[in-house]
């Protein structure tokens, strides 16, 4: 098939240039919106669980083993396993199941980074705040969270990129999003379309990564960027 490489590339370009592939209920536009909607839902769901838990564990300064265990298990757990397990259970398949599965994979990076960010807050700063008479709540919101914010943001960014990269697998279990283009192409052996779909998914992931990297920079105070290399996302891995 490798000899047909150039003809597949021209097929892919032709497919991308066909306006009919961009519009309509199954066009690139609608699928991208669906993809981003599912991703946003998954990140919100995951963050809704992981942020409070991470803040609580970090504030109490314990529970490190739990976060490490969670991120290790999630590394070993294939998304496809979770999706097919869901499909065979009461959760079922389709977009809702995919959002739940992606949300589960969004938890470890957010949890780990929130916890680590809170732990990294200088003990002297906490001591000074306590000396100034700050109670636990004001300590959390006025001191710990602002100082941990860049690391927390890095965790949310990792999770979001991972989710955007996970959602394409939805197409395998009758869900939507841009993965549909790849899956339909493979099923009908239109490899130009497969290639075009792969490029679209990759471009979307990279754009989300780029936009979130900018957002993360915005929430990071300038004085904290010096030690930036130490603050890279803890649990970056490819979507499985």
């Amino acid at each position: 098939m490798s000899g047909a490489g150039s003809h597949i590339i021209s097929d892919a370009i032709a497919w991308l240039n066909d306006p009919l592939n961009w519009t309509g209920p199954h066009g690139i536009g609608a699928l991208t919106v669906e993809h981003l909607g599912m991703s946003a839902g998954a990140v919100l769901l995951g963050a809704g669980f992981a942020l409070p838990l991470g803040l609580w564990l970090g504030h109490r300064r314990r529970g490190g083993q739990v976060t490490v265990l969670l991120s290790n298990v999630s590394r070993a757990m294939p998304t496809l396993a979770l999706l097919t397990l869901f499909a065979s259970s009461a959760i079922g398949f389709g977009n809702r199941a995919v959002v739940i599965a992606a949300a589960i994979f969004a938890v470890p990076p957010i949890l780990t980074n929130t916890f680590t960010g809170m732990l990294e807050v200088d003990a002297d700063v906490l001591d000074a705040a306590r000396g100034m008479g700050l109670g636990p709540w004001r300590m959390l919101w006025r001191v710990e969270v602002p100082l941990a914010l860049p690391v927390i943001a890095a965790g949310v960014r990792t999770a979001a990129v991972q989710v955007v990269a996970t959602v394409p697998l939805a197409a395998l279990v009758a869900g939507g999003g841009l993965g549909v283009i790849i899956n339909t192409g493979l099923a009908t052996q239109r490899y130009g379309q497969v290639l075009a779909g792969g490029v679209l998914v990759a471009v979307l992931s990279m754009s989300v990564e780029g936009i979130l990297a900018g957002a993360q920079r915005l929430v990071t105070p300038r004085f904290m960027t010096a030690g930036r290399t130490a603050r890279q996302p803890v649990a970056a891995l490819p979507a499985t």
Partner: peptide
Amino acid sequence: ALYTVPSLALFAILAPFTG
């Protein structure tokens, strides 16, 4: 950069050329 490319997309980009 390659890390942000989803595995499904990478396989889809490779499949037309490597079978």
